[in-house]
Amino acid sequence: KLATQLLVDLAEGCHTHHFNSLLDIIEKVMARSLSPPPELEERDVAAYSASLEDVKTAVLGLLVILQTKLYTLPASHATRVYEMLVSHIQLHYKHSYTLPIASSIRLQAFDFLLLLRADSLHRLGLPNKDGVVRFSPYCVCDYMEPERGSEKKTSGPLSPPTGPPGPAPAGPAVRLGSVPYSLLFRVLLQCLKQESDWKVLKLVLGRLPESLRYKVLIFTSPCSVDQLCSALCSMLSGPKTLERLRGAPEGFSRTDLHLAVVPVLTALISYHNYLDKTKQREMVYCLEQGLIHRCASQCVVALSICSVEMPDIIIKALPVLVVKLTHISATASMAVPLLEFLSTLARLPHLYRNFAAEQYASVFAISLPYTNPSKFNQYIVCLAHHVIAMWFIRCRLPFRKDFVPFITKGLRSNVLLSFDDTPEKDSFRARSTSLNERPKSLRIARPPKQGLNNSPPVKEFKESSAAEAFRCRSISVSEHVVRSRIQTSLTSASLGSADENSVAQADDSLKN
């Protein structure tokens, strides 16, 4: 292990032709098999893994070397290190390495390699500790012929580059190093199909959405987006994914797998022009299946994007999809995704031109529960009313008269009656009930004795009459309010007539 670390330190600071010789020695160290011998017992696995620490030291050392060589000349050094790393990870899946030390190597290698970024000039870069990406002036992410390196360097940008540029090249004859992302992409596909350690798979799935944002990485080298989509959909639809995973937390289920895969599918929607129609349908189907899991909100957001990006695919699945959405409970976490999906859909009339009455009724059935102001915040309630109004205007004229009683009944049950079921009123009724029952229970537990009763009969009569009056008032709060309003209006009217009579009498006395 110490000798391997010494080789790594020497290679990191070497800029001459001896660098390749040092890498040859490190490569021989990495070539050791990580498969346990067949006769190895389970209690000896930890000791055997400790004997392979030099392999881990070599791989982690290459990660440090690549981070240094990416910004220094010659660029061919970075290319050689990158290829060695990718080849080593491929061996893991070729020979099915399952030892804990092998999983640790893959975890740290993917953690580093999935941080690679590219700008519009195809320059590769890595983020620093502050998250700012520094791009290399010597390494690009696409394949290029050595003699055409300078031509590639002087080509115009596709868009303004992001991030601070690296140091300027030493001279005009500098050759750019090619670090094609397709090599890593193929290893990522192998990981999605064969990885057995949940920690490694979770890391890859968590980092892929951010990497897919940099389309330069994908399009400048032959990366098959179709295969990526197929691998992701197979993970969700195939039963073998959960069987092969180990190291998963207790209670791990298909729902947890959906939570990890759906963000990658959402990021892949922007590549729909490069996906086969069959793959697009598979993607939409997987998102529909996710509606029954805890990732339902993410799936609804993804389907909203699909309705804009892939209208030809979503239009066929939309009638059944809208009916499925009615089975989702009206909760605060689902309110905004569902209502925004319906609001977006209302502005795309070509998608729902074939809707029948059942689909329009489903839209109103989804939106009406969110009009309850005692359960949802003001934004959700306003958005629900907006969706109902928009869809009522957009639905066909023959359907409107049939939906009017349905909508008014839903609004009455969710908006008007919600004020009668407020917690304050319920607590008031509970308190009044307890007050009504309390005197009775006290009389049963403690019967009054005439000799020891010091309270006069008049006081008892007053208290009983007050309790009886309170019971009468607490029967119905709404009736009490109505009666008080009527009494107030009658009182004001009587006072007004009394004032008029007094004024008339005063005038008569003055005349006399």
Rank of each mutant, 00 (worst) to 15 (best):
S51V: 06
S51W: 02
L52W: 04
L52K: 04
D54T: 01
V55A: 03
K56N: 07
T57W: 03
T57Y: 05
A58R: 00
V59L: 03
L60W: 09
G61Q: 01
L62R: 00
L63D: 02
I65N: 02
I65S: 02
I65R: 01
L66P: 00
K69L: 01
L70F: 05
Y71K: 02
T72L: 10
L73Y: 12
P74A: 03
P74T: 03
P74Q: 03
P74I: 00
A78S: 06
T79F: 12
Y82H: 02
E83F: 06
M84Q: 04
V86W: 03
S87V: 05
S87R: 11
H88W: 01
I89T: 02
Q90K: 10
L91N: 11
L91P: 00
Y93N: 00
K94F: 09
K94E: 13
T98S: 11
T98A: 09
P100K: 04
I101K: 01
A102L: 03
A102I: 01
A102K: 00
S103R: 07
D111N: 09
L115I: 05
L116F: 07
S120H: 09
S120W: 08
H122P: 01
H122D: 02
H122I: 01
H122C: 04
R123Q: 05
R123C: 04
P127E: 07
P127N: 04
K129A: 13
V133T: 12
F135C: 03
P137M: 04
P137L: 04
Y138L: 04
D142K: 05
E145L: 11
E145P: 11
E147H: 12
E147K: 12
E147A: 13
G149D: 14
G149N: 12
G149K: 07
K152S: 08
K153N: 14
T154D: 12
S155Y: 11
T162L: 10
P165S: 04
G166Y: 15
R175L: 13
S178D: 03
V179E: 02
S182M: 05
L183C: 08
L183I: 11
L183V: 10
F185K: 01
F185W: 08
R186S: 13
R186F: 05
Q190C: 09
C191R: 00
C191P: 00
Q194W: 12
E195P: 00
S196M: 09
D197E: 10
K199E: 14
L201E: 00
K202P: 01
L203A: 12
V204Q: 01
P209N: 09
E210R: 05
E210F: 09
S211L: 14
L212Q: 00
L212C: 01
R213M: 09
Y214S: 07
K215C: 03
K215Q: 06
V216H: 06
V216A: 06
L217A: 04
I218L: 08
T220I: 01
P222L: 02
C223V: 03
V225Y: 03
D226R: 04
S230C: 07
A231F: 03
A231K: 02
L232Y: 00
L232K: 00
L232E: 00
M235E: 01
S237P: 03
G238E: 12
L242P: 04
L245Q: 02
L245C: 03
L245G: 02
R246T: 10
R246E: 11
G247V: 05
P249Q: 08
P249M: 05
E250T: 07
E250C: 08
G251C: 05
F252I: 11
F252T: 05
